[in-house]
């Protein structure tokens, strides 16, 4: 695969509203069309089916919002990272906003390879008292293992989520919602979803809003 590459750009962006219902594949296509509309010279792979070189850090689950998503793109001619921001913003659909664009070394590791932690903010509508939640969180954090059953391809398998929960804390109660912060480890081998952590707390709730707020890399 030969690609003419002049520069690599890292785009930090947010997802909200209607776009939170898009899959990671949808978001990929959306960005590709957005770059075309904004006349960004994407670097294409050669071959029968040329495709632009783009890499996401971590797929965002359908239904989540995020204020910290990462996309790396490779372009075929050098661009001023700051100067293209307005150009791109003019092409953003509802629910997509660009926070920062930076030029990074061509040989920087892929955003996925060195990703270590993901931070979430959970807003829960529930009849439960804050003390109940605080106790449940303390119980969970004090346990050395939290095993839950997960079915993969029809087979039930036990999985210990505790090592993946790096931090879980109750923040406060605001606008009828309990605010909880959660930090999960990112491993290629196994991962858990914030909902699964909440399930393990055994707290009944009416609604749960999940927002990704941070991606943390090695050496950060």
């Amino acid at each position: 695969m030969q690609i003419t590459v002049a520069q690599r750009l890292r785009i930090i962006y947010s997802i909200s509203g209607a776009l939170s219902y898009a899959s990671v594949l949808d978001i990929g296509r959306l960005w590709e069309r957005l770059f075309h509309r904004a006349h960004i010279p994407l670097a294409y792979s050669q071959g029968f089916n040329p495709h632009p070189r783009m890499q996401f850090a971590a797929a965002l689950a359908v239904g989540y919002t995020s204020c910290y998503e990462v996309l790396d793109i490779w372009v075929s001619r050098p661009l001023d990272a700051d100067a293209i921001i307005p150009q791109l913003r003019a092409q953003c659909p509802e629910g997509l906003s660009i926070n920062v664009i930076e030029s990074i070394p061509l040989d920087a590791p892929s955003p996925q390879a060195t990703l270590r932690r993901m931070g979430y903010r959970l807003e829960m509508e529930s009849q439960a008292l804050d003390t109940e939640l605080k106790n449940a969180i303390a119980n969970l954090m004090d346990s050395s293992s939290v095993v839950f059953e997960r079915s993969r391809k029809g087979q039930a398998k036990d999985f210990d989520m505790r090592p993946l929960i790096l931090d879980l804390r109750y923040v406060h109660y605001q606008d009828n919602r309990h605010i909880i912060e959660l930090t999960l480890a990112f491993h290629a081998q196994g991962s858990i979803r914030p909902e699964e952590v909440i399930q393990a707390m055994h707290i009944a709730f009416d609604r749960l809003y999940i927002q990704r707020v941070a991606l943390v890399w090695e050496n950060e």
């Binding site: 209607a18 776009l19 219902y21 898009a22 359908v62 239904g63 092409q91 659909p93 509802e94 629910g95």
Partner: peptide, 17 residues
């Protein structure tokens, strides 16, 4: 609430370019 119960929520979300 509605879209949490369906397989392809994108069908009903709107907000397209």
């Amino acid at each position: 609430e509605l879209l949490s119960q369906v397989q392809k929520p994108g069908r009903y979300a709107g907000g397209e370019w």
